[in-house]
């Protein structure tokens, strides 16, 4: 049986090969299944790969979450190797000598890491809170979408299982006991911090996009475009036109579609 060390070595070996043509990005079904936080993460990875100018195909699978080596979407398959989530994928791509941050000095790099952690720890957690803890959103959206790929009665069992997992996570992070207003306040603070960092520049760190831009794009674009029973989150984001402009810019530049953000 292969040991974790051998796993590690084989992943490293795989990293040295050039970027192959048949790279696939696995994610849940966008129309009927995917949830807000997952969608944000999938979009962030897509944006990052496009920023790096790397080819990939999106492959929707109902069981993408379970296929992923970390249990979270999205993940990419490069040759025989699978790597999940934005951080892992950024590292994997860096291993192939492709990086969006190689021109930054160490201080800026640690800044970038700090902001990425901020987005992950605030916006993503707030999305989880709204999807799984807020009763209205859970009943009208999350419950239906998450269970859509399972037959009865597995859908109810899996929804409950997932909800318990998320609640456990939120409890550890001390978010479960927050009221929805406190959650909005956190998101607002985070947006404010990002707004200050962006400071009317083209991207967060100058003229070239970084993985932070990809991550912020993924989350904000998903928040703006996903119809939910509660629209407060959208309204908070809309108060920061510079962030909206950033999202539009990335959308036009890398996804080449008209933005319907207005």
């Amino acid at each position: 049986m292969p040991s974790p060390l051998i796993d590690r070595i084989s992943v490293d070996l795989g990293a040295q090969e050039p970027w192959p043509k048949d790279v696939k990005l696995f994610q849940p079904y966008e129309i009927e299944q995917i949830l807000l936080p997952d969608n944000a993460n999938c979009l962030a990875v897509q944006a990052f790969l496009k920023m790096c100018n790397l080819d990939f195909q999106v492959e929707p699978r109902p069981n993408a979450e379970f296929m992923s080596p970390t249990g979270r979407v999205p993940f990419i398959k490069v040759g025989r190797f699978v790597t999940a989530e934005l951080e892992g994928i950024v590292q994997f791509v860096n291993g192939k000598g492709i990086s969006l941050t190689d021109k930054l000095d160490n201080e800026l790099k640690s800044d970038l890491r700090a902001y990425m952690t901020l987005v992950r720890n605030v916006i993503e957690i707030a999305e989880l809170y709204i999807c799984w803890v807020d009763k209205e959103t859970y009943n009208e959206v999350t419950n239906v979408r998450n269970g859509s790929v399972y037959p009865w009665p597995l859908n109810h069992i899996k929804n409950r299982e997932k909800r318990n997992q998320v609640i456990k996570k939120l409890k550890v992070l001390n978010w479960y006991n927050k009221t929805i207003e406190e959650v909005y306040q956190e998101v607002e603070n985070c947006c404010e911090a990002l707004n200050v960092r962006l400071d009317n520049k083209h991207y967060f760190f100058g003229d070239k996009p970084t993985e932070l831009d990809a991550l912020v794009f993924g989350h904000l674009f998903t928040i703006i475009t996903t119809p939910l029973p509660r629209t407060d989150l959208v309204e908070i984001v809309r108060r920061y036109p510079t962030l909206i402009d950033l999202v539009k810019r990335i959308e036009i530049e890398y996804f080449k579609k008209d933005v319907k953000v207005t």
Binding site: R61, E65, F66, L154
Partner: peptide, 24 residues
Amino acid sequence: IIRDLSTLTRTSSFDVREQSGPSL
């Protein structure tokens, strides 16, 4: 029976990985 299938190691074949997930 609810069956949760998952890969045994990270290096399991992708054909096996594709099968992961719950089924009833």
